[in-house]
Write a protein that binds this DNA or RNA. Structure first.
Lengths: 181, 181, 181, 181
DNA sequence: TTTT
DNA sequence: TTTT
């Protein structure tokens, strides 16, 4: 249950191909960066100005697998999620904070980046939490095929501490591992 | 799964106490009307103007029970949901349409209308589809107690056709009944 | 100023080309219908099911002109706006209600339907209310060229009462006309 | 104009009283921290868990003055805005990043924290960008009275660089100053 | 009436 | 640092 509302809605383009990793539990975690931009005319000079905002978006579980399979650099995507700021330590041992959007819904808005039959226009909810009783079995091929190949038999090590560590949102998924964040 | 995004976010006050009904399957359906308003100054006269918009909101299942128990006339509430336009026939047999917001999330924003310990600030997701593994067992007392008392042993008749009939969103819940809409 | 929040976010496809009309004041009003859909598997039969929701969206002023120029049947579009239910009389003089989304922001999500250089990805705010000091002068060509051609010299008559009449949102724009709704 | 959508919707409580500052241009900038939280039951232990998310929200111009006047520690508030990540240098000269929500709309949801007649339920748009022709002249008393008292005759110095510097969103307001961010 |  |  939530006290308060923490909601983010983004429509933007991926800056890079998604990075898919697997938790020791086998659950997928996919990170992407999404660009949105504003353009305006400078009042003084009349020059066109542009500022691009880069958003770190993280997908978990089934949504992570769908994102990893269907999104590519340049893909235009709708993302809905929640803000989460993670604390981590840099090389010097200093506290650092990174703010991300933990995605709960994703929808591709173009056909690029899709070498499958899914094409632009698919939609997906956070793994296992769809409002639909059975969202057309998206997860099946992923849970059986894709992850089987991509998932290392040996649980991957936690990344070294100088980079922001993976971190599932509390109570968001079914990780058995006890990962502080 | 969804193609496209259909999202409504409302913060408003209830015009009346909630109306709770039960489907033949025993699932709860709660209807409320929510007011939002705009005020502005008339350009000509400088007079303050106000327009109130009334929104029909419908809750299903567990969320319907929570809404029925904790909301009251005047309650301030956050509602998130989707638009759905239902077709029905008036007395003359003419097609009529009613647009409602099918709520997927609700959050009380004040303590009024709550004679329980829940108070303002609680949050609830659409029944059974919470992103939390177990959202503190809200449904339990409701599914066991409240509905048991309120739910008629005999399935209630469908309302007469001159009023907009109840209608669950397709694929939204686990009704076994085949209700067209 | 608003009391409460009345917000709609849609991503969908146009069912038809936009219908652009002009108010007696010369301000544009554009209506489109937007489709969003849900698909799911029937629990009993395992059959794929689909339900399409049709949304009436109305744009005013500059946004109406941009929508009329760049959107076409099939266009995928992001729309943000507010719900408004209008009352009107049918042929029999009976009160009828129509719920629409009054758009305050629009963004094309594909290149189709655009025979201009604007392409997919443009964004536009409600006429005159952009957060940007000068949103790149979108309105200029429209306010000067397009409307000049499309706008009748004689103000068009209000539609006959059997169809839902045009109606700007209260306090939303700068109409001098006094149109009840 | 925007390419893409960058939207945040929060409902939460202020962790502290707002901090109001004034730019050299005289424009107000108000910072608040907003708490949202999730609670859930641990799957293993059945223990209730809670995680609070803290959001940095920044208001500019007229909205900053309204926020500074009416919000207080503990106030429940609705905020709509956009994500912006600012780059700044810490004492060691290292690049640091801070993500904030630049508010474009704010609405008080309770009466606490308000010693004025405005009470809970008021709404306000980003200064000067309201969709209403004249949102009841909110800014007037603030622009004339409140800021006059609170605003130093001498423009305040930019904060030392070890703390994240003030930074208006690009193209968001009418600052003449050239502040990099 | 759209879309995949 | 809030809130319930």
């Amino acid at each position: 249950m939530a006290r308060g509302i923490n909601k983010v809605i983004l429509v933007g383009n991926l800056g890079q191909d998604p990075e898919v990793k697997y938790m020791p539990s086998g659950n997928a975690v996919t990170n992407v960066t999404l660009a949105t931009s504003d353009t305006w005319k400078d009042k003084q000079t009349g020059q066109a100005q542009e500022r691009t905002e880069w958003h770190r978006v993280v997908f978990f579980n089934r949504l992570a697998e769908i994102a990893g399979e269907y999104l590519r650099k340049g893909s235009k995507v709708y993302v809905e999620g929640a803000l989460r700021t993670r604390k981590w330590q840099d090389q010097a041992g200093q506290d650092r904070y990174t703010t991300e959007i933990v995605a709960s819904e994703m929808q591709m808005l173009d056909g690029r980046g899709s070498d499958s039959g899914m094409g632009g226009g698919m939609g997906a909810n956070a793994g296992g939490y769809s409002q639909q009783p059975d969202p057309m079995g998206y997860g099946q091929p992923h849970q059986q095929a894709a992850p089987q190949q991509g998932r290392p038999q040996q649980a991957p090590r936690q990344q070294p501490q100088q980079s922001p560590p993976l971190a599932p949102p509390a109570g968001f998924d079914d990780f058995d591992d006890d990962i502080p964040f």
